[in-house]
Design a protein around this nucleic acid. Structure first.
Length: 401
RNA sequence: GCGCAGGUGGUAGAGCGGUCAAUUACAACAGACUGUAAAUCUGUCGCCCAUUGGGCUACGGGGGUUCGAAUCCCUCCCUGCGCA
C-alpha cells in the first residue's frame, strides 16, 4: 500500500494547474495547499491549535535543524515529529538540501534563492567551487560535510543519512537529499549540481525502499536545474522515470521566469503524483505556480515577515511599524476574518511591535499565515469553480496597487 | 552663603585645544526578507544645496585667550551632593 494517495479533482482549462486531494498517514490535504513551515518542530510564535485554527493543514520541519537539536533519535523516542510537537495532522520534512545552499554558497552573502534578472551576473563574484573562509558546508560527490550552526562541530550528510534521519523524525512526506544552488551559479555548475542531485535522488530512493518506513512515509524526489530550460527538463525527465511518491521543485529561480521554469518541469512530471514547489510563497508567486501545475508550497515568508512587522493585505504588504499606523484603529485588512483582524486594530499591533512585546509575533503570524493559507484555499475553490483566471486577475489588480 | 561635582545632538553618555556636526547605545524614520544561522538585517538620523562635495548654525548664557575652542580662562545662570 502506498504511503500517500493523490487524486486530481479538476484542472484549469488549457493549463497545468489542478485541484486535488492528497491523503497521507496523518490526514488529508486539499490541494493546492500552503504548507506552514515549522523548521524546528514549531511554527514560530504559534501553538499547533492556532496553526490549525487559521486553516493550515500540514507542517514542514527541517532535517538538518532537528538532527542537530534535539536530535532525530529523541524525536523518534518521543513518538515521531507529529506527537513530539503535538501537531495532529500531516507533516513533512525537508532533507537538509536547502542548508547546503544557505550555509554554503549563500553563507555570509545577501543572495537568496530568488534573483531578479539584473542581479544575476552583477553579483556573480562568487565561485561555487571555491571555499571562502567561514562557509559551513563542503560538498563532494558522496555527500556534504557541515559545521553545526549551533556549536561549530562537524557533521556529515549523505543521501542515505538524510533519509535515515527523516525516517527517525517520521514525517508523512519526506524529501530526497539534494543540492540547492545559487541563482548566480553558472550553467556548468548548475549542471554539475543537478547531476549530483540526480545521483543522490537514486541513492535516497534505494535506501528508502529498503526500509519499512516506505510503507508509511512518502518520498519526494527534487527537480533541480536552476533557471536553465534544458536542465530543468532533463531533471524532470530523470526524476519522473523513478518511483517517487511525489516531487519537489527546488533550487534557484529568476524572478521573471519562475513560472516558466515551473511549467517546463510540470509539463513532464507525471500527473498522478503531487508536486511541491519548495520555498515559494509570495502571493503572486503562488498564483503563477498553481496555474502552472504545483500542488504544494512551503515558505518562511509569512511567518518571518510577520515577526519583522510586514503584514499582508489585499492591497499589498504594509509595515505595521510605520508611523502612520500608531493611531490607526482600523483592522490590518478590513475583509480579513482571521483571529487577529477580528479582535485587534493596527494601532494595537503597532504598539506591540514598538514595545517589542511577544504577542506582536503571534498576532502578526496568525494574520499572515491566515492570509496566505486562505488565499491558496480561495485559489483552489476558483479552480473547482472554473473561475481561476478571474480570481487571479482581480487579486493581482488589487494587490499590486 | 561656602566647598565639591556637573551642564554636549530626542534620551543616556563619550570627547577634554586642530583629524568634531561631534564615538557609542537607545529612541525615531524608512527599507529588505521566498525548502528559517532571522523576535533578524540594512540605510538615514542639526539645517540648506550637491554626485564626490560645499555652505550655515551648534556642545547652558555672555565675554576672553589662541592661527584655531565642545575642549583653556573670567563671569553669570542652572542641577546634584556636602558643610553652614
Amino acid at each position: 500500500m502506498a504511503p500517500i494517495k493523490f487524486s486530481v479533482e479538476k484542472k484549469i482549462p488549457n493549463r497545468l494547474g489542478r485541484a486535488g486531494i492528497l491523503e497521507c498517514a496523518h490526514g488529508t490535504i486539499q490541494t493546492p495547499a500552503f504548507v506552514t513551515v515549522g523548521t524546528k518542530a514549531t511554527v514560530k510564535a504559534l501553538t499547533p491549535e492556532q496553526v490549525k485554527e487559521l486553516g493550515a493543514e500540514v507542517v514542514l520541519a527541517n532535517t538538518y535543524h532537528l538532527y542537530l537539536e534535539p536530535g532525530d533519535a529523541l524525536v523518534k523516542t518521543a513518538g515521531g515529529l507529529q506527537r513530539f510537537m503535538h501537531w495532529e495532522g500531516p507533516t513533512m520534512t525537508d532533507s537538509g538540501g536547502f542548508q547546503v545552499f544557505s550555509l554554503g554558497a549563500a553563507y555570509g552573502k545577501s543572495v537568496s534563492k530568488i534573483a531578479d534578472a539584473r542581479a544575476i551576473g552583477a553579483s556573480d563574484e562568487e565561485n561555487p567551487q571555491s571555499e571562502p573562509a567561514g562557509k559551513l558546508v563542503k560538498i563532494d560527490n558522496e555527500g556534504v560535510t557541515f559545521k553545526s550552526v549551533l556549536d561549530g562541530s562537524t557533521h556529515r550528510f549523505t543521501p542515505e543519512r538524510s533519509v535515515e534521519i527523516q525516517h527517525n523524525i517520521g514525517a508523512d512526506m519526506i524529501f530526497a537529499f539534494d543540492e540547492c544552488t545559487s541563482p548566480s551559479a553558472p550553467l556548468e555548475y548548475q549542471r554539475e549540481a543537478m547531476e549530483r542531485t540526480h545521483r543522490w535522488a537514486k541513492r535516497s530512493l534505494d535506501y528508502h525502499e529498503s526500509k519499512d518506513a516506505r510503507k508509511s512515509q512518502a518520498l519526494f524526489g527534487i527537480v533541480q536545474g536552476g533557471r536553465f530550460e534544458d536542465l530543468r527538463k532533463e531533471s524532470a525527465k530523470y526524476l519522473a522515470s523513478m518511483n517517487f511518491d511525489g516531487f519537489g521543485i527546488g533550487g534557484s529561480f529568476n524572478k521573471d521566469d519562475m513560472y516558466d521554469s515551473v511549467e517546463w518541469v510540470n509539463g513532464i512530471l507525471p500527473e498522478d503524483r503531487p508536486r511541491h514547489l519548495l520555498g515559494i510563497g509570495e502571493p503572486a508567486d503562488l498564483l503563477g505556480a498553481i496555474e502552472n501545475g504545483c500542488d504544494l508550497f512551503d515558505c518562511v515568508a509569512p511567518t518571518r515577515m510577520a515577526r519583522n512587522g510586514a503584514l499582508y493585505t489585499l492591497h499589498g504588504k504594509i509595515n505595521i511599524s510605520n508611523a502612520r499606523f500608531t493611531g490607526d484603529f482600523t483592522k490590518i485588512d478590513e475583509k480579513c476574518a482571521c483571529y487577529t483582524c477580528t479582535h485587534y486594530t493596527k494601532a494595537y499591533l503597532s504598539h506591540l511591535f514598538r514595545a517589542r512585546e511577544m504577542l506582536a509575533a503571534t498576532l502578526a503570524s496568525i494574520h499572515n499565515l491566515y492570509f496566505i493559507v486562505n488565499m491558496v484555499k480561495k485559489i483552489r475553490k476558483s479552480v473547482l469553480d472554473g473561475t481561476f483566471t478571474e480570481f487571479r486577475e482581480s487579486f493581482l489588480a488589487a494587490y499590486q496597487t
